[in-house]
Simulated assay, not measured.
Amino acid sequence: MKFLDHLEEWLIAFLMGAATIVIFIAVIHRYASGMPIPGLQDWLIQLNTSWAQELTIYMFVWMAKFGAAYGVRTGIHVGVDVLINRMDTPWRNKFIVFGLLSGALFTGIVGTLGASFVYELSHHSSTSEVLELPMWMVYSAIPLGSYLMCFRFLQVAWNFIKTGDLPKHDVSHVEGLENEDLAGSRV
């Protein structure tokens, strides 16, 4: 399942890149349509980019939902483990598994409630204000992101039970760049 190994990064990178392009185009359009160039100004004023803000808001909501799943997978999601890390190993391990399974249960419940909400919403004709997208499409980020996060909690729990290792985020590590490549460039 190599496809799922970096799903969040691909989705977040795509959404972030697309949002950047959309906002760049909207800003260029706004400034260029204020330039008194006959013909060009008239043509630009006729173009409507009011949808750009709404679209990027939705894109950032989706990024946040998938970013939380990424955080669980990589070990950077918020967690309070000060007391747990002071426990003896057998108790510590039990509490870690309990916490991971609780996270999976919670996100599974949120995903299920979100899916129920999206299903109910799909039977109504509500649309977004500017883009006129069906709102069920916008709110689909809730069940999709929550179920992915639930899957990541279960994945981390399974790996912890098998190996005793939790994902640790190393801010100095760049994937694809080996340590010996950096040996000469350290300051």
Score class of each variant (00 low, 15 high):
residue 1 M to K: 04
residue 7 L to Y: 04
residue 11 L to C: 07
residue 17 G to I: 05
residue 19 A to Q: 06
residue 24 F to T: 12
residue 27 V to E: 05
residue 28 I to Y: 03
residue 28 I to S: 07
residue 29 H to N: 00
residue 30 R to Q: 09
residue 32 A to L: 07
residue 33 S to A: 08
residue 35 M to R: 00
residue 43 W to H: 15
residue 53 Q to H: 01
residue 54 E to F: 10
residue 59 M to R: 00
residue 66 F to C: 01
residue 68 A to S: 11
residue 69 A to K: 00
residue 72 V to L: 03
residue 72 V to D: 02
residue 72 V to K: 00
residue 78 V to A: 12
residue 79 G to Q: 13
residue 79 G to L: 08
residue 79 G to C: 09
residue 81 D to M: 12
residue 82 V to D: 14
residue 85 N to G: 10
residue 87 M to P: 06
residue 89 T to H: 11
residue 101 L to Q: 08
residue 101 L to G: 06
residue 103 G to Y: 11
residue 106 F to Y: 11
residue 107 T to W: 14
residue 109 I to K: 10
residue 110 V to T: 04
residue 116 S to A: 15
residue 122 S to E: 09
residue 123 H to Q: 14
residue 125 S to G: 13
residue 135 M to C: 05
residue 135 M to P: 00
residue 138 V to S: 10
residue 140 S to E: 05
residue 141 A to T: 13
residue 142 I to P: 05
residue 143 P to Q: 05
residue 147 Y to H: 09
residue 148 L to Q: 03
residue 149 M to W: 07
residue 151 F to W: 09
residue 156 V to Y: 00
residue 157 A to Y: 12
residue 163 T to F: 04
residue 167 P to N: 04
residue 174 V to R: 11
residue 176 G to S: 06
residue 176 G to C: 05
residue 178 E to H: 14
residue 178 E to W: 13
residue 178 E to Q: 14
residue 180 E to A: 12
residue 181 D to R: 07
residue 181 D to I: 05
residue 181 D to H: 10
residue 182 L to M: 15
residue 183 A to Y: 04
residue 183 A to E: 14
residue 184 G to E: 06
residue 185 S to E: 15
residue 186 R to F: 09
